[in-house]
């Protein structure tokens, strides 16, 4: 069956790597984001790699008025509809401390925006009786930490949303994969202090694609973050609250 992949936040390095992989497998790709010039470059790249159709679509997580147009565009396509969500923003915690109004944008980009989009899109997938949604969360969502708890809270909300959506789509033959990357070498983390065990976007994309094929529910990428987070989430609060990791 023809595969269609809608990729939200397609300009990010992880999304780029993922779009390329599915394009090389012959899927049609719909690259959604804000920077149309940049998305046009990625669309050309995906076409050269094997996508018959690669289109740039305007998507702004904070402007839900644009969501129906994207859904309607995908509804015109035959075959299986899949969505991968890579949107999110991570202002420095100190910037949020200075200006608490940044919280709504962070939550909008990383949680409520994509959730609202998916909520509108899910019926389309139910109608077709299949398809996969990939939601990229973060290990930061597993436990609130002093360094980035607003971003973490948004990603935690998104992860909970995805788990509910999985519960729903499973009934219709669809599937949801929750992806929790550790540190990935992207523009967002470039030059940040304290990075370790940094994964390449290509490795993360490979893990995601494998998880989609195997219909995994939640993956950590690289895999060892599952164990790191196991320790972090199981640390007693009495101790954890005094730590700054």
């Amino acid at each position: 069956m023809k595969q269609n992949w809608l990729i939200l936040g397609a300009s990010s390095a992880m999304a780029r790597a993922f779009a390329r992989r599915v394009a090389e497998n012959g899927a049609d790709v719909y690259l959604a984001g804000r920077d149309m010039d940049d998305l046009a470059c990625l669309a050309a790249d995906c076409r050269v790699r094997g996508a018959e159709t690669a289109e740039a679509l305007k998507f702004d997580a904070r402007k839900p008025s644009g969501f129906p147009a994207i859904r309607d565009r995908l509804a015109m396509q035959d075959g299986e509809l899949n969505v991968a969500v890579f949107v999110g923003s991570m202002p420095a915690q100190s910037a949020i401390d200075d200006d608490p109004a940044l919280i709504s944008g962070t939550v909008g980009d990383s949680f409520t925006g994509p959730a609202q989009f998916l909520q509108g899109f899910a019926p389309l997938m139910e109608d077709r009786g299949g398809g996969t949604i990939v939601g990229v969360g973060s290990v930061a969502g597993d436990r609130g930490r002093i360094g980035n708890y607003v971003y973490g809270a948004a990603k935690a909300g998104f992860a909970t949303y995805l788990s509910g959506l999985r519960n729903r789509l499973t009934r219709a033959g669809g599937h949801v994969v929750t992806v929790k990357p550790g540190f990935v070498d992207t523009a967002m983390t470039w030059g940040l202090p304290g990075m370790f065990l940094v994964a390449s976007p290509e490795d993360v994309a490979r893990d995601i694609q494998r998880a989609v094929q195997k219909r995994r529910n939640t993956i950590y990428t690289p895999f060892f973050w599952r164990y790191i987070m196991l320790i972090i989430t199981h640390s007693p609060e009495a101790i954890f609250k005094k730590m700054s990791i």
Binding site: S11, A13, R16, D35, D37, D38, C41, T186, A187, W190, G191, L192
Partner: peptide
């Protein structure tokens, strides 16, 4: 754009340089 401060070296790793490195992902960022 954020810069990464790191020591870089040629492939032979004899000559090295310290300096900020930018890594744009888009032409506009470049």
């Amino acid at each position: 754009m954020r810069l990464k401060i790191a020591e870089t070296s040629g492939w032979g790793r004899v000559l090295r340089a310290n300096g900020p490195m930018a890594r744009p992902e888009k032409i506009t960022a470049l």
